[in-house]
Computed example of a mutant assay.
Amino acid sequence: MNYIENKVIFITGASSGIGKAAAKSLLELGAKVFDFSRSRQLADEVDHPNLRSFRGDVSVEDDVRNGFMDCLQAFGTVDMLINNAGIGMVSLDLATTDLDTYEQMVNVNMRGVFLSNREALKVMKPRKHGHIITVISMAGQRTNPNAPLYCASKFGARGLSSGLADQAIKLGIKVTDVNPGPTDSDYWGDRQVPREKFLKVEDVARVIVFVLNQPEEVVIREINFDNMKFLA
């Protein structure tokens, strides 16, 4: 069964990486995809009648509000939200990490999730229907001495999502955390890391599609996964 066809799916950060791969897969399954991205837009690359794009920053309240309004004007509703936008910056030594780095990490990875969830819930609660996915990370479950701020922001996002799940299930709204291990994406920049052992963005996209394409009564609260080569 295809439970995604004709569903309106709002994706933050769909212009690259995991979000882009997920958007393409969802369009192929007949979904209506709304791409909310800060930089380049998916619609500049993909020509599809069920795709709309909006340039905005998930950490800016007015941008998020206007993005959801634009989605409602284009498609009439929001059935599913994928919180995918995120950033990660090098913060090895907290003693020398500047406040701007901290604020950027928290604003995108936590504040952005809160703002997007809030707007989605305004649409989903009256209908008593919807599904919110947050792409967090295994860094939201296990700390990493090389990225303490990134882990902190992801732990916070996971706490927010878990608390929302407890509230939302009573309203008929499903909430799922998708926690991939290291993924070969733009996140790493020019850092020397073993990308050949990492998940591919398409791997993560397949997991997202799997979670969304479940029957209405099936609830997946959290899904964790890694590349076998990374764990070996």
Score class of each variant (00 low, 15 high):
residue 185 S to A: 05
residue 198 F to Q: 01
residue 218 V to W: 01
residue 198 F to N: 03
residue 188 W to A: 07
residue 149 L to W: 03
residue 203 D to M: 07
residue 211 V to G: 00
residue 189 G to Q: 06
residue 186 D to R: 14
residue 182 P to I: 02
residue 134 T to M: 09
residue 158 R to S: 02
residue 210 F to E: 15
residue 133 I to K: 02
residue 183 T to D: 02
residue 202 E to I: 01
residue 138 M to E: 04
residue 176 T to G: 13
residue 173 I to C: 01
residue 186 D to M: 14
residue 132 I to Y: 04
residue 142 R to G: 15
residue 149 L to Y: 13
residue 137 S to E: 09
residue 134 T to S: 07
residue 187 Y to Q: 08
residue 194 P to M: 07
residue 138 M to N: 10
residue 163 G to F: 05
residue 198 F to E: 01
residue 190 D to C: 03
residue 161 S to R: 15
residue 161 S to V: 15
residue 178 V to P: 06
residue 137 S to M: 10
residue 144 N to P: 11
residue 143 T to E: 13
residue 166 D to E: 11
residue 141 Q to E: 12
residue 195 R to D: 03
residue 208 I to G: 05
residue 172 G to I: 04
residue 177 D to F: 11
residue 192 Q to H: 12
residue 146 N to P: 11
residue 136 I to C: 08
residue 164 L to S: 00
residue 135 V to N: 07
residue 134 T to D: 06
residue 145 P to N: 04
residue 184 D to W: 02
residue 142 R to K: 14
residue 181 G to T: 01
residue 135 V to A: 07
residue 185 S to P: 05
residue 215 P to W: 00
residue 200 K to N: 10
residue 175 V to I: 13
residue 172 G to P: 05
residue 159 G to M: 14
residue 149 L to P: 02
residue 194 P to L: 14
residue 172 G to T: 02
residue 204 V to P: 11
residue 193 V to M: 04
residue 172 G to W: 03
residue 189 G to Y: 01
residue 177 D to N: 15
residue 169 I to F: 08
residue 206 R to E: 13
residue 218 V to I: 04
residue 204 V to Q: 10
residue 190 D to V: 11
residue 197 K to T: 12
residue 191 R to E: 14
residue 164 L to C: 03
residue 148 P to L: 06
residue 166 D to V: 10
residue 191 R to G: 10
residue 133 I to H: 03
residue 145 P to S: 05
